[in-house]
Structures are given as structure tokens and as C-alpha cells.
Design a protein around this nucleic acid. Structure first.
Lengths: 203, 203
DNA sequence: CTTCAATGGAACGCTATCGTTCCGTCCATA
DNA sequence: TATGGACGGAACGATAGCGTTCCATTGAAG
């Protein structure tokens, strides 16, 4: 593995087997997430990630200089955008849809292990903070739209404290599923949506 | 270090320097928490813990057979009981006191790093689940008393869903401080208490 | 067909860490 | 004073993992 090729006169463009394999990059990303879910970020061994992907470590180091860059690229590549988040007709229905989607995400076997690990890791070291910020931004955009609609419907006051709302809406679900490690059924999800919507309307 | 002395005829009771030093045990517990806060459970190195405590690994292995037992003993020894949780006169005031105390705990530099790490670790392996159950039980007892008082005051219906309340009360604070990694001032804490109390009263 | 470019699996040299072993040392007891 | 019991720091042998190096192999281009 000769990584630094500088000031070399290129007479032929690399091609064929001399080009990074994207299928191997994909396999490395998948392996990283699986290893991450199993061990937590701090204990990720790149040797094990490579083995899990059926590769050697050189394949990793050719692509990323460090575990952190590797993890950053993986998160950015896969950040679950909430995508289209339609109007459900009322604040409560919007919140229910938001919580339903969030529940689905938090049920994913990799996400439910990697996300809290990211939170814990961020407490120790700010290295991964940009990753969480990246994830949070997409969720915030969806949340802003939801609040905008509720204001337009006159369900919420225009000057509602949006930070407060962004704390109140997802937190009981996160607490239930991650902190308490408990499942939540449809009825409880609906009750959360109703109580939260009611609470926000009376702010 | 000869740990296994079995079927040996004891002719004299150990004493003096032949007895486990409790000051060293204390130092080991402190060192463990510091290392835990720094690296997360998965990456704790007992060698580093011992060094941090100014000791050798034999001192650890004489006391505990594994990292897990060591960690268990440490948590059980130090689980922050919420202690006396007095009656503040109303549900809202009780909740505010509860949140104030919780905020103080979550501000502690070791707790704010170890607690989310425990949650993340539990998602990966059930090994540490009993520790979290232990911590949760003491908090639950305080919470039950708070709900009992509110019912006695006729602020809450006797059949309120206690699980729902236990999710709703601490979660926005936890979300704010741990998941969002944001501080929270007195005014926002009071608002949380007011909104949560109101929400529970209207359940 | 030959050549090129560089990929990527395997191996390397080094360090950190593990659980265990060793034995000098300690301090109360006889 | 001598003795007993075992503690606990240092060292041990083995392994895991790191970042780097090596070079056989690959596949497109000429």
C-alpha cells in the first residue's frame, strides 16, 4: 500500500482494478455500523471492521485516514433523512406521525444502538458532535415545518418557544425506548401525541 | 498474588498488612469512575484504572473477578439515592424540586458521562441492565411518593397511568441536557415543571 | 497481446492490555 | 523478637490491534 503518490507524472489514467471499488466501500460502511452497534464507538477495532467486510485494513486506510473520518463519512452517507413529512391536518396528528416515524427509526437494531452511543460518546469527546449536529438538523427542519403549520392553523401562538417544543415532542418516546429500554404500543404513542399537543397548545 | 486458598488450615487470622485495604478499594472505585467517564465502559482498561489509583492490577483482581463485577460493585456502592424527597405543597412544586435535583445530578461531570454510557451499553449487552434497574428503582420510589401525594391532593386521578407519568416527567430534561447537550436555566426548568404538571392533571 | 496504475489481502514491527505469577514487604500477633 | 498471612506493585507470556509495508493481482487501456 503506497498511499502518497505526489509529483508523479501521470501518463495513464488509473482504471480497471486500479480504481477504488465502490462495492467494497459499501461493505466497509455496513461492517462499520455493525461493529459500532456491537461494541460502541470507543471500542471499534478497524481490524474487525475490515474482517467483517471481508477485506484488509489497507482498504480502510486508502479511503479514510482515521476511525473518526471513516465514521463521519458513514454517518453522512446514511443519515436517515425524515424525507417528506406531510401535513396531517392537525398538530396532534402531525406529532403522532412524527412520533410514529421516530419510533420506527428507534426500533432499527443498528440505530437503537448507535444513536445512544453517539450521545454518550459526545459527552466524552466533542469529536463526533458534528455528526449529531448533522442528524439533528434534518430532524429540526421537519419539526419547524410542523410548528409552522400549527401556527398557521392558529393551534399555537406565533411566539411559541420552539426550543421548548423541540425538547418536549421527542423526549418521552426517546426516554421510553432508549433510556428505559421499553417498547411502546400504538395506544401509548397516541396518548403521548395527544398530551404533548395539548401541552403545547396551552403554552 | 495467590488468590485461591482453599482447604487450607487456617492457623492464624489474617491481620495487619495481610488484610484488604479499604482506602485502596475506595481509590480503585474513584479511578474506575474517572476512567469510565473518559473512555466509556467498553474501552475501560483495568491496567489504566489500576495506574490511576496508584496500584497494580493484582489489587483489582483480588477484589473482583472481572470488569463487570468491579463496575457492578462500584455502581451499587455509589448509586445516588435521591434521599429524602419532601412534600413541596403541590404537584408542580414537587416536579420542580424533582427536576432541580435531577439537573444537579446530570450536571455532575462523572454522572453526565457515565449515565448515558450505561444506557448505550445496555442497548448492546444486557450485562449492565441490573445496574440501571438498581438506579431506576430508587428514582421510582421517589416518583411514586410524588404521585401519591398529588392524588391525595386531588390534583391527579387515582387511576393515572403511572408509567406514562414516569416517562413524561424526567424526559424533556434528560433530552435537553444529555441528548441535546444543552444547559437549562431555572426559568426553563420551571416551565417544564409547569407544563408537565398541567399535562398530567389533564390526563 | 502487453502495459499501466494502484488496489487490497496478508504480513510486519510495535505497543497496549489482558489475566496470572512472583516475592518483597507489611503489620498484627504470639 | 520471630512468625504468619496475604497484600499489592512489578513482571510475565500471550494476544489483540494499530498504522504501515509489501507485492501478487486485477482489469481497463494501448
Amino acid at each position: 500500500m503506497e498511499r502518497k503518490s505526489i509529483d508523479h507524472k501521470i501518463s495513464r489514467k488509473p482504471s480497471g482494478a486500479a480504481v477504488i471499488r465502490t462495492d467494497l466501500t459499501d461493505a466497509l460502511f455496513r461492517a462499520l455500523f455493525e461493529e459500532w452497534a456491537q461494541t460502541g464507538y470507543a471500542a471499534i477495532s478497524l481490524e474487525r471492521v475490515a474482517a467483517r467486510a471481508g477485506a484488509g485494513k489497507a482498504a480502510i486506510y486508502r479511503r479514510w485516514p482515521s476511525k473518526r473520518e471513516f465514521a463521519s463519512a458513514a454517518i453522512e452517507r446514511s443519515a436517515p433523512g425524515l424525507g417528506g413529512f406531510g401535513d396531517h391536518g392537525s398538530l396532534e396528528a402531525d406529532i403522532l406521525a412524527y412520533l410514529t416515524m421516530t419510533r420506527r427509526v428507534l426500533r432499527h437494531p443498528l440505530v437503537r444502538r448507535i444513536l445512544p452511543d453517539l450521545h454518550a460518546e459526545r459527552m466524552r469527546s466533542g469529536d463526533l458532535a458534528p455528526l449529531l449536529d448533522h442528524v439533528a438538523t434534518t430532524r429540526r427542519t421537519a419539526g419547524q415545518a410542523m410548528l409552522d403549520r400549527a401556527i398557521a392553523r392558529h393551534e399555537l401562538r406565533p411566539d411559541i418557544d420552539r426550543e421548548f417544543a423541540f425538547d418536549l415532542i421527542p423526549s418521552p418516546l426517546y426516554w421510553r425506548m432508549i433510556v428505559r429500554c421499553r417498547p411502546i404500543g400504538r395506544a401509548d404513542l397516541e396518548r403521548q401525541a395527544a398530551v404533548i399537543a395539548n401541552a403545547l397548545r396551552s403554552c
